[in-house]
Simulated scan of single mutants.
Amino acid sequence: MGGLAVPGDLRSEEANDYLRQACDKCGVVCKPPYRTARLLDKLINHILVPSCINPTFVINHPKVMSLMAKSHKLRPEITERFELYLNQQELCNAYTELNDPMEQRERFSELLKELKGGDYEATELDEEFCESLEYGLPPSAGWGIGLDRLVMFLTYSQAIKDVLLFPLLKPKRLVML
């Protein structure tokens, strides 16, 4: 990606340090917490997205960026996920649903550590969801292209919050922070 040689194990501290340095080198602002997924997302938006003028599918997202997506059959470090970009804007996000309750619980648990470490964007462990997976979720996939994304594209808006009809309320834990 953009001439970067990101270390193979994205869960390592070495990869996180490399991505932090890459952000600094590229002039990419990423405020703490410096989760690998956040750093990757910032770099992708800085390096890759500006070149996505024509319809572009970004595929095989790293597992650290795809909490709910199933791991790739041949390469478990990536997921069965893609995003469609057009005119430098994401129009669609799609993935095969992760239906393994043990793996999903493990991914939630890793993010829970981040939440306890002060990362207000990390998600809590959704035990009800994991329990429902134990009852069985058949193989499934989905894609999202909401009306808000289409309006964003048609109005040349740069941020989705600019086209939302009703602003979202922040969760109580964010207000307290």
Rank of each mutant, 00 (worst) to 15 (best):
M1C: 12
L4R: 05
A5G: 06
V6I: 15
V6G: 00
P7M: 03
G8C: 08
D9V: 05
E13K: 13
E13S: 14
E13W: 08
E14P: 03
E14D: 10
A15I: 06
N16V: 03
N16R: 15
L19P: 00
C23P: 05
K25Y: 02
C26N: 14
G27W: 07
G27I: 09
C30Y: 01
K31T: 11
R35P: 02
T36G: 00
L39M: 00
L39A: 02
D41F: 01
D41R: 02
K42V: 00
L43E: 04
I44L: 06
I44K: 00
N45E: 09
N45G: 13
L48D: 10
P50Y: 02
S51V: 01
C52E: 02
I53R: 07
I53V: 12
I53E: 05
F57S: 13
V58N: 09
N60V: 03
N60K: 01
H61S: 04
K63A: 10
K63L: 11
K63W: 06
V64R: 00
S66G: 07
S66T: 04
S66D: 09
S71I: 00
S71L: 02
K73G: 11
L74V: 06
R75F: 04
E77F: 04
T79A: 02
E80H: 00
E83V: 02
E83G: 03
Q89Y: 06
C92H: 11
A94W: 04
T96S: 15
T96K: 04
L98S: 05
N99P: 02
R105C: 05
R105T: 09
R105W: 07
R105E: 13
R105M: 08
S109M: 12
L111R: 12
L111K: 10
K113L: 14
K116Y: 07
K116G: 05
K116A: 13
G118E: 07
A122S: 15
T123E: 08
E124Q: 04
D126S: 11
E128N: 14
F129D: 11
E131G: 11
S132H: 08
E134P: 03
Y135W: 12
L137V: 07
P138H: 11
S140T: 15
S140E: 08
I145H: 12
I145W: 13
G146L: 12
L147G: 03
D148V: 13
R149P: 04
R149K: 14
L150I: 15
M152Q: 10
L154S: 10
Y156T: 15
Q158E: 14
A159C: 07
I160G: 09
I160C: 11
K161N: 12
K161C: 13
L164S: 12
L164P: 01
L164F: 07
L165Y: 15
F166N: 07
F166S: 09
P167F: 09
P167C: 04
P167M: 09
L168M: 10
L169H: 08
P171I: 06
K172M: 08
K172F: 10
K172P: 03
K172E: 14
L174N: 09
V175N: 10
